[in-house]
Amino acid sequence: MPDKHVVFDVVGTCVSFDAFYNTIDRVIGSRLLAKNITARSFGFTWMTAAELEFTFLSISERYRPYKDVIKALFYRSLYMCGIESPRTFATDAERDQCVQGYSELELRPGTADCFEILRNAGFTVWCLTTGDAKRVRGYFERAGVDMPLENFITCDTAGVAKPALAAYKPALARFAEDDVKWFAAAHMWDVSAAVKVGFRGAYCTVYEKESCAELFDAEMDVLADTLPDMAKSIVAAST
């Protein structure tokens, strides 16, 4: 019998961004709101800008860990949101507090059930992340969800960021040719790229709500609105 594997994206898929947004709100939220900027909208803008630069650096063969990139983009992101003098608006200490909020993200409801469903069906659960494995594993440890360190694969090791196809290949190479190999994510750009290198794709709408599937050249074997439903569908589609 072939072995069965599911590789998960972590941040955004298994983990929500609420703690990050809440930290920003606590640290500088009142000042942002005075400028008609919500903590959530600034947090999303900052995070998205960091992901963009992180990806561009990787593409141009100047890979930097995501934690370094998001820290560097804080003041620029404030400026892009309409804060004309960002370095008088906030301090380095406040920036660092906001960055720390990204390390305190929490698992989405249903993540533990999702993993349990898959493991009970004989799947090995893996994680492929752009973050450092220790920080990302901490999300699971704080929630009391078992996720062995040896089952984390980080883009920091290869120095290539998702969604470059080379970022998925080290994960795929861990498995035998006839193994059952799934990639599961709540980012359509992520799972659709994994499909291109040979994974079966499972997409959950829990983060993006709208898949914008017309932009992505990949067929999903599983589409679901919750993580447990996605797990059940993966099990059913693998029999």
Rank of each mutant, 00 (worst) to 15 (best):
T91R: 10
A93N: 10
E94I: 11
R95C: 14
R95M: 15
R95Q: 13
R95N: 11
D96V: 10
D96W: 10
Q97D: 15
Q97K: 14
C98M: 12
V99R: 13
G101V: 01
G101H: 06
Y102M: 09
S103C: 03
E104T: 12
E104V: 00
L105P: 01
L105Y: 01
L105G: 08
E106N: 10
E106V: 13
L107V: 11
R108M: 12
R108K: 15
R108A: 07
R108Q: 13
P109T: 08
P109N: 06
T111Y: 00
T111S: 01
T111G: 00
A112M: 04
A112P: 01
A112H: 07
D113A: 14
C114I: 08
C114A: 15
C114K: 06
F115S: 13
E116F: 05
E116V: 13
E116C: 13
I117F: 11
I117D: 12
L118Q: 09
L118R: 09
L118E: 11
R119Y: 02
R119E: 15
N120G: 15
A121K: 03
A121M: 02
A121Y: 05
G122V: 08
V125Y: 03
V125P: 01
V125K: 04
W126G: 05
C127H: 02
L128W: 03
T129P: 02
T130V: 06
T130R: 06
T130F: 00
G131A: 06
G131K: 00
G131P: 00
D132P: 03
D132L: 01
